[in-house]
Structure formats: structure tokens, C-alpha cells
Amino acid sequence: MPTLNPLSTASVAVNAARTLTRELEQRILTPAVEAVAGDGRKQRWEHHKQARRTELTEGTVEAIRALGPNAGMDEIAAHVGVSKTVLYRYFTDKNDLAAAVTVTYMESTLLPLLTDVLTDDLADYDLVRTVIGVYVDTVSADPNVYVFTTGRSAGSNSAAYTERIFTGAVRSTIEQRLGVRGAQIDGAKTWATAIVGAIIRAVDGWLVTRDQPTTQLVDELTMLVWSALVGIVARNGDPVAFAADPLPMPPLPGDAP
């Protein structure tokens, strides 16, 4: 696959991720109460409420790192240094708190790292492997917060929205890269969803067993994703052409040529 300069592609992918992050904030965080025009007290309360939510969210991140993703509201409150009543004053329930932590984690950790990768001048293969490596290494370095924010323990919808953020960025990148080649892009949504889903499921399973080094996990995922992308490009992004002429399986050792 020829080397392409990914800078224009990167801007599209990054913008998609940021747009979806704003959507995440709007849809799963408790909506702010609209300030009444001219009511200075309500406006001041609303500013205080949002500032306090931010402070408690950041404290919760540190609590989850220390206590684990299954920590209850009582434990989180004690670690933050407030009562559980205070948490419920600013968050509807644990799902609401997990949603707030998700946005903080995405904006402060994962998205900046992915932005740096996507704006690097990397060849196609290097970009694929580096993006997977960033995801795996970030999860490995902060597993408690990852599990909590993706809703595996918190029971919230945060996991679905987290996947949408990554899928949107991957889809934009695929569309741009195929577009440069004049290939069909109708399948980009399906391919991006499958790629992101496979990576997330594999990482989730690895977190349970930790049965291999992260470098091996990255290598195996890269092999899977890169092979799929090469197959798509080889048939110009056209499922009909692929079905009519699928890439052949290499012969078994010892088979006659």
C-alpha cells in the first residue's frame, strides 16, 4: 500500500472525535439548569454547581485509581473527602458520575494522545499500529479508570458512547484514505465499527487475564486490522468485486504450486 501523507485525514478524524465528545457531554451528563435572564443568583449557583461537579469528578478519577472500578459511592465519597449526600447533590446516581468521569478521561487522556498520533506524518501501516498501540498502552497504564468509564462495572451507557467516539474517528480516516485512492467508501461505517469493536473486545479480554505482553497484543491486533484494510483496498472498497474475486488463501506447506 503506497505511503500517504495523513495530515488532511488527521484533521477530519480529530474533528470527528471532538464533535462526538461534545455529543457525549450533552447526552449522558446531567443537563445544566438554564439560567433565567437577569437572575444573578441562579447564574452564580449554576457556575458553582458546574465547578463543584468538575472538582468532584476529578476526585473520583483519583478514587477509582486507588480503590478499583467496583468502588461504591460510599467509598468514593470517603476517598474524595465528602459525604455520599454531597455526591448525590451534584450527580443523580453512580451512572451519572461514571458519565462525568468518562468525559474527563476522554478529554484529558485518550483524545489528546490520539490527536498527537493522527497528526503525526506516519505511513499507513505505522499509523494503524501506532493508534492501536496508544489505545492498548493507555488502557494498560490506567485499567481501573478505563473499566469504570467504559461502563463495564458502572453499568452505564458510557461504553456505547466511548465506542462511538473512536468509531467516528476511524471511519473518517478510512473514508479519507480510500477517497484519495478513488475507492468506494460506502462500507466505511461497517468497517470502522468492526475494527473498533474488535480492538475493544480484545483489550477487555486481555484485562481479565493479562496473559501476554502488551507488545504481543498490539502485534496481533495490528495483523488483524492491517490484513483487513489491505483486502478492502485490494478490491477498491467494492464488496461485490471482493465477493466475485476474494483474495486467495496461501497454499499449505508442501502443496504443489
Rank of each mutant, 00 (worst) to 15 (best):
S11W: 08
A13G: 12
A16Q: 10
R22K: 10
L24H: 05
R27S: 12
G38D: 02
G38L: 00
G38K: 01
Q43S: 11
R44A: 14
R44I: 07
W45H: 13
Q50G: 01
L56P: 07
G59M: 04
G59A: 05
R65L: 03
A66V: 09
G68H: 03
N70L: 12
I76W: 11
H79C: 12
T85H: 05
R89A: 14
R89L: 11
K94L: 13
D96T: 08
V101N: 04
E107Q: 11
D121A: 14
A123S: 13
V134A: 10
T138N: 12
S156Q: 11
S158C: 01
A159D: 12
A160Y: 06
A160S: 15
G168K: 00
A169M: 07
E175H: 03
V180D: 07
G182Y: 11
G187E: 11
A188V: 15
K189G: 14
W191G: 10
I200V: 13
G205K: 04
T209F: 02
T209P: 01
E220Q: 10
M223G: 15
W226K: 04
A228R: 04
A228E: 04
I232R: 00
D238V: 01
F242L: 13
A243L: 15
M249E: 13
P251G: 11
D255P: 02
A256H: 10
